[in-house]
Design a binder for these strands. Structure first.
Lengths: 223, 223
DNA sequence: ACATATTGTCACTATACGGTGACATAAAGG
DNA sequence: CCTTTATGTCACCGTATAGTGACAATATGT
């Protein structure tokens, strides 16, 4: 594709820069850098074109508009932890564990995976105020992954009375919210959500919740 | 709006409509209705002035600008559950309860109090993307209330090993997030966050977490 | 080499925004 | 009564946005 076309007529300009796919890619990458750098409030055709160093009309020519460009951007990276990332790779052994253990591992990987994705955090904040191609794609992936995880852990689900879906929903929602808010505030409920210690604190709390709520029944006293 | 003022100079029209405080109030109320109706993305001097039916220059004359108007609006209503609302009124009896009970009550009141405040939910979403006079005030109130609650429950805090601050932070954060997201998505982790049943499900899950994690130690085995 | 289609630049429209100055009109006070 | 002050209306400025048409420069195919 990168047809680094030969010079044609004379005048060697070392700039064979008339490459459609290259500029397309520059635009897509510009979305990412702009999103990570300035946030989504600054994301518009003018800003993206300026960041990419090309004319904004090419956004319309090559993508049809910002929505399509966003869609392309959404497919250009991994914005969400995959099942492998969440489970640590071996779902087989995870399935054998008690639910209190497996959910703790998953939540720990979830925190780690999201904390290192600055772009995803930005999109998470975006999702709070707007629904567009990008956020919908991310929402779909999230829901698919969680459903697949439930399927994966289904044998473990029998051993508990707790509402696993609701409790894990709460924990994941809490992580999402605190990540979003850490961009604008420092403490939430007295917890420092900007420091490493604060997140260690939250992580151990989450693991404690998993262990307390999903603990295997040792003495089947009731039912 | 229809300032049916007298036509020309003569004759007393029964419309003494040159009232500063009245227009001030109209502007403040316009912020509320606009915020509840169109969301904060539509909140600007032009929109507020149009909604109030007055000229936007009065926003500058009477308030100095949007930030001050927002500040006034923030002081014009109760956007956050008070301690009384969260505790149910009698903090004395609450203090006697085991922590698993008192936190459950507080969380239940928190959900109820926030679910009925549509405007607060809008501001919560706003906080995800921007920091302004209104959101800062709300953040301060929230932190103050939570700190006051901790003080109120301090006698109960001795009886547990759990990190009460971290766990309650998680639960409150989860409620905030799910309320925000319910405006744009229907299900989160398989839970229907738009239905009454879904929130009942979440509420029982939260209460279960409180009971499991803050349960009083019956058998003091360690320490 | 030439004609053609592609790639890119520029200028422009229309719209909306925050903000300000000039001016009309009403109330208040002498 | 007339003057002064407060209240409200209007027109405008500068800026930024999304989007489009015209045109230059380059690559491509014959």
């Amino acid at each position: 594709m990168a047809c680094s076309s030969a010079k044609k007529r004379g005048t060697a300009l070392p700039t064979p820069y008339r490459n459609r796919s290259a500029t397309r890619e520059r635009l897509v990458r510009a979305v990412g850098t702009l999103l990570a750098h300035k946030g989504f409030t600054a994301l518009g055709v003018n800003a993206v074109a300026k960041e990419a160093g090309v004319d904004k009309v090419l956004i319309y020519r090559y993508f049809g508009g910002m929505p399509e460009l966003l869609k392309t951007f959404a497919g250009s990276g991994e914005f969400w932890p995959s099942i492998e990332e969440l489970t640590g790779g071996d779902t087989a052994t995870l399935r054998q564990m008690p639910l209190s253990e497996s959910t703790a591992i998953i939540m720990r990987n979830y925190i780690k995976g999201l904390r290192r994705r600055a772009l995803t955090q930005e999109i998470l904040a975006w999702e709070a105020v707007e629904s567009n191609e990008l956020t919908q794609i991310l929402d779909n992936i999230r829901e698919e992954v969680s459903m697949a995880l439930f399927k994966e852990l289904s044998p473990s689900l029998k051993g508990t009375d707790a509402d696993v879906a609701a409790i894990t929903a709460l924990l994941a929602a809490a992580v999402n919210y605190l990540l979003i808010r850490s961009r604008t505030i420092r403490t939430f409920n007295g917890v420092d959500i900007r420091s490493e210690e604060g997140w260690k604190q939250l992580e151990t709390a989450i693991i404690a919740v998993c262990q307390q709520c999903f603990a295997p029944r040792e003495s089947p006293k009731k039912k």
